[in-house]
Amino acid sequence: MKRALNFNAGPAALPEAVLAKAEKEMMNYLGCGMGVMELSHRSNEFEEINERTKNLLRGLLNIPDDYEILFLQGGASLQFSMVPMNLLEEGSAASYVLTGTWSEKALKEAQKIGKAVTAASSKHDNYRSIPSTSEIDIQAESSYLHITTNNTIYGTQWHSFPEGLPNPLVADMSSDILSRPLKLSSFGLIYAGAQKNLGPSGVTVVIIQKDLLKRSEPGLPSMLNYQVHAESKSLYNTPPTLSIYFLMLVLEWAEALGGVKQLELMSKHKSALLYDAIDRSDGFYTGHAEKESRSRMNITFTLENDDLTTAFLYEAEESGFTGLGGHRSVGGCRASIYNAVPLENVEKLADFMNSFRSRN
Rank of each mutant, 00 (worst) to 15 (best):
G202H: 04
N298H: 14
Y245Q: 02
K268Q: 14
G326K: 10
R42E: 12
K108T: 11
D66M: 03
Y314I: 08
Q139K: 15
L220Y: 00
G100H: 10
P84K: 03
T322D: 09
S222C: 04
L39N: 03
E48H: 13
S92F: 01
T300P: 00
K210E: 02
F352S: 10
E344C: 06
L257R: 02
E217H: 14
H41P: 09
Y236R: 03
S160V: 11
K123M: 10
G74M: 04
Y191I: 03
N345A: 10
T149N: 06
A116Y: 09
D279P: 05
D172N: 15
K196C: 06
H124V: 07
V83Q: 01
P162K: 02
S143E: 07
Y191T: 00
A116D: 11
A192I: 05
L257D: 02
L343C: 09
I153A: 07
L235T: 00
G164D: 08
L242N: 05
T101L: 13
M34Y: 15
D176F: 04
E109G: 01
M85N: 07
S122N: 13
G193A: 15
I208D: 02
I244G: 00
E217A: 12
G100K: 12
I130W: 11
A335Y: 10
M82C: 11
E90A: 11
E264V: 00
T310L: 14
L19D: 02
Q262R: 13
D306W: 11
V330K: 09
I190E: 03
S81E: 15
L145Y: 05
Q73W: 01
I138R: 12
L303S: 09
G91K: 08
E109M: 07
H124S: 12
R280L: 05
L265N: 05
Q111F: 02
R52K: 15
D307V: 11
S267T: 05
S81R: 15
L70I: 08
Y154D: 13
N151D: 15
G75D: 06
I49C: 04
A22L: 06
A119C: 08
K268E: 14
F7I: 08
D307Q: 13
A256H: 01
V346M: 09
T302P: 05
L224H: 12
Y314R: 15
I299L: 01
L88R: 03
H327W: 13
G259A: 03
S174K: 07
P84Y: 02
L88C: 06
A350D: 04
T152I: 14
E347T: 10
F46H: 05
F284G: 03
S201K: 13
N354T: 13
Q73N: 05
A93N: 12
A116T: 10
A289R: 12
A76E: 15
N345R: 11
L184F: 00
T286I: 12
F284P: 10
L14E: 10
A316H: 00
L247K: 09
R52L: 09
S179N: 11
A277R: 05
N225C: 06
L263A: 03
S160Y: 14
G219N: 04
S175E: 11
L5I: 14
T241G: 02
K183S: 14
K214L: 08
F284K: 03
N50K: 10
P168D: 06
A256F: 00
S175N: 14
V250R: 07
E315I: 01
T101Q: 11
M266F: 06
G219F: 04
S143I: 08
L57K: 00
H159I: 14
N225V: 04
